[in-house]
Simulated assay, not measured.
Amino acid sequence: MVRWEPGARDRLRAAALQLFADRGFEQTTASDIAESVGLTERTFFRHFADKREVLFDGQDLFQELFVTGVASATGGASAVDLVADALQTASAFFPDDRRAYSRLRQTIIVENPGLQERELLKMARLSEGIAVALRERGIPEPQATLAAESGVTVFGVAFRQWIAADERRSLAEIERDILGELRTLTAPAR
């Protein structure tokens, strides 16, 4: 078996995703994934703590992009404007060439309650990270938490639209549209 071939992590990720889709998450083992790309199970575990991590790898970078978006936003911005900047910055995590991968990943998560729970925990952690960044920018409570939770909701709605089979817009464009809908929804009645 090939041991130190370049790109092993990406090959393992691609193989895992396909095997999860074909066989099911529970029916696929780390050994199955490694063997499918000519690697050992030990090599798999050098790259991923367990098979769930194949799907959730990059979570820290994803959150860091949101927090960076809040931290680097222009001074004096409202909580919603800071969240808009965070959404814009974090959309770089999902370039259009990642859409097919994200679509397949989401299908696998939706089919497995344990993975759904993990995804919800990831979103809760993201919301708390954004809220902390907002508080550090001087946004008081409960505004910081409300804005952070709203930002995560906007991301979730936009992401589901972005992975739709017939969607062609960028995630950033969809997020701007969804955030506009939220602003309309919360605007005072005339």
Rank of each mutant, 00 (worst) to 15 (best):
E128S: 04
R105P: 00
R9Q: 12
S170L: 01
L65I: 14
L179D: 03
D97V: 15
R99W: 12
R23F: 15
T186G: 09
D10L: 15
E181R: 03
R3L: 09
G114S: 12
A90K: 02
L12C: 03
I33E: 11
F44T: 02
A8D: 09
L134H: 14
G24Y: 07
D96A: 09
A84V: 04
T89W: 02
F94M: 12
G151Y: 12
V2R: 07
S91K: 08
T184C: 08
P142D: 03
A100I: 02
V37Y: 07
A133M: 06
D60P: 04
F25K: 05
A147L: 12
F94R: 08
A21F: 00
S150N: 08
V157Q: 09
I174A: 11
L171H: 01
E35T: 13
G75F: 15
F25C: 00
L126Y: 04
R46Q: 06
D50A: 04
T68P: 03
A189N: 03
F56R: 01
G58F: 03
Q59K: 11
T153Q: 03
L134T: 10
G24A: 01
E128G: 04
L87Y: 14
S170P: 00
L115W: 13
A158D: 13
F56M: 03
R125M: 00
E128H: 09
G69D: 05
E128Y: 02
A165D: 10
A71Y: 15
T40R: 03
L185C: 05
A16W: 15
H47F: 14
A165L: 11
L146I: 08
Q88M: 08
A16K: 10
L185T: 02
Y101I: 04
G24S: 02
L185W: 10
R13D: 08
G129V: 04
L115R: 13
S170Y: 01
L134V: 07
D96V: 00
I178A: 05
G156L: 11
L121W: 02
F45A: 02
K51E: 06
M1I: 15
A79Q: 01
A21R: 07
A84P: 12
R169F: 03
R23S: 12
T43I: 11
A34S: 09
E111F: 03
N112G: 03
F62V: 02
A16F: 15
F45Q: 01
R168A: 11
R52H: 05
R190I: 13
F93W: 04
L82K: 07
D10F: 15
L121C: 03
R137G: 12
F159C: 08
E35K: 15
Q18Y: 06
T43A: 13
F25V: 00
A189S: 06
A71I: 07
E149I: 10
A79P: 01
A147W: 11
H47Q: 13
R13M: 13
A34L: 12
E128K: 02
D50M: 03
A133I: 08
I178V: 15
